[in-house]
């Protein structure tokens, strides 16, 4: 699994964590059939973060703490996190992901 794939997985897992928090804080409708194990989610997250390069984890965690999401998709060269048009220098390189210079989220061009 590449670094970006791991980050995407981590991002989607963090979205699930947010749902569990929303559920436990009783903001969600009572009829929602969700019963994920919080500890299992935390363990899965720890396993994922252990496989990530520290610098990418730091970038991801910083943006996640600030915005609630550490990763942003790119559509038509626009960062879907802050909606800035990205320069060509933000195009993904062969070996590593890129970061939005405006908001600091890791960019996912796929």
């Amino acid at each position: 699994m590449t670094g970006l794939e791991t980050l995407v997985r981590l991002h989607d897992l963090d979205l699930l964590r947010q749902e569990l928090n929303a559920r436990s804080s009783a903001r969600a409708p009572a009829a929602v059939p969700i019963g994920a194990d919080v500890l299992a989610v935390q363990r899965a997250r720890a396993r994922l973060t252990a496989t990530l390069e520290r610098r990418w984890l730091t970038v991801y965690e910083r943006a996640h703490a600030r915005y609630g999401r550490g990763l942003a998709a790119v559509r038509g060269r626009v960062c879907q996190g802050c909606f800035i048009t990205l320069p060509t220098s933000a195009l993904p390189g062969p070996e590593s992901p890129k970061v939005c210079e405006s908001c600091g989220r890791v960019l996912c061009w796929r």
Binding site: H11, D12, L15, Q18, E19, N21, A22, R23, R27, A28, P29, A31, V32, P33, I34, R69, A73, Q80
Partner: peptide, 14 residues
Amino acid sequence: PPEWSAATHLEAVA
């Protein structure tokens, strides 16, 4: 989509 809040997604599931 990820832009949706947790509560909105849970409402959709419900």
